[in-house]
Design a protein around this nucleic acid. Structure first.
Length: 327
DNA sequence: AATACGGGGTC
DNA sequence: GACCCAGTATT
């Protein structure tokens, strides 16, 4: 049996003392410095669900105003389930990833019919909801129901990597499954809520992807990445991290297409245009085409048709012979 | 494993 | 302009 440490699971390379120290330091920092966020002030699982869907790929500062507006428009799960989908899509602007609005409402409807209006409290059940993946399921279980579960988003992934493993290396990144298992290993007993929130605060403030503020980090004495960079005189960290990332380059090679010529851009334009229509009003494709693309011609008709079909399939628009509108 | 899916902020 | 962001579903 080969016991070479190189082949040993990550967890066995961890020193219990380092874990304990990092836990104490991070939880202590969070107790004093945590951000005051509205979804941390509520215990309403519905409000937390709304916040988690909005926060997918979207920064806190952009979610804050919309979170309040959304809950004013749809104060309860039942009110969201009953609303016209067009209303939900309208309130969603300008968060982007508009399918999230449709999925959030479909979650509300599914919970009303299949769970008697109570949002599930286990990861297994939460994962059955369309639009809820492993991160969001873990977040709701933990933040709404105080379940002692690990959950990994991009912040948590990066912070755990740096604290317990070291500076990111392009070739040695853990898979999602490995990182989740790792997160479970270092979850402090009984502190899942504070720990997960603390990791995200750390990732958003002290330890972002670029230009981490190692100089003011409370984990200097326990962080593997900090020790690495100190030993090799790699500070200032921002430069080093940038160079490491540069070595990893190989993405960005083919995406030279301007955003305003992408499918994604025109989908957004269509939905945005339909938002300005009054209820029930439809727009024909011949009218729609020139409105979203100035140089639109008859030759573009199949392209537009394909775009519209895709949007309809995603539940973002209602398309008939008469034209299109929000659903 | 790669790609589609928005939009706004940052350097 | 490239990169980033409290991800998920699909291929």
């Amino acid at each position: 049996m080969d016991t070479d440490s190189q082949d040993a699971p990550i967890s066995s390379q961890l020193e219990p003392e380092q874990i304990a120290q990092a836990q104490t330091q991070l939880l202590g920092w969070y107790a004093a410095e945590q951000r005051d966020l509205p979804w941390r002030r509520t215990s309403d699982p519905y409000a937390i669900l709304v916040s988690e869907i909005m926060l997918q790929q979207t920064q806190v500062d952009r979610v804050l105003p919309k979170y309040q507006q959304f809950l004013t428009a749809f104060p309860t799960l039942a009110s969201l389930a009953e609303a016209p989908t067009a209303d939900v899509i309208n309130v969603w602007v300008p968060l982007g990833y508009n399918m999230r609005a449709v999925r959030l409402q479909s979650i509300a409807r599914q919970v009303m019919t299949e769970y008697s209006g109570r949002i599930p409290d286990t990861i297994e059940e939460l994962l059955k909801l369309k639009g809820v993946g492993r991160y969001t399921a873990g977040a709701i279980a933990c933040f709404a129901y105080r379940r002692q579960v690990a959950t990994v988003d991009t912040n948590i992934r990066r912070v755990l990597q740096r604290i317990f493993i070291g500076v990111e290396q392009p070739d040695t990144a853990l898979t999602d499954g490995e990182m989740l298992a790792f997160a479970e290993q270092v979850l402090p007993s009984g502190e899942a809520y504070n720990w997960n929130q603390a990791l995200m605060d750390m990732g958003a403030t002290i330890c972002p992807s670029n230009n981490p503020k190692c100089g003011t980090c409370p984990l200097q004495t326990s962080c593997k990445a900090y020790q690495e960079m100190s030993q090799h005189s790699l500070f200032p960290s921002g430069i080093v991290l940038r160079q490491i990332r540069k070595v990893a380059e190989k993405k960005t090679r083919y995406q030279s297409q301007p955003f305003t010529s992408t499918n994604r851009y025109f989908r957004g334009r269509i939905v945005d245009l339909l938002r300005s229509l009054s209820a029930e009003q439809r727009m024909t494709l011949d009218l729609l085409g020139p409105r979203i693309k100035p140089e639109y011609s008859d030759a573009d008709r199949p392209w537009l048709q394909r775009l519209v079909s895709g949007l309809a399939k995603d539940g973002l628009i209602d398309a008939t012979e008469e034209g299109v509108r929000l659903p």
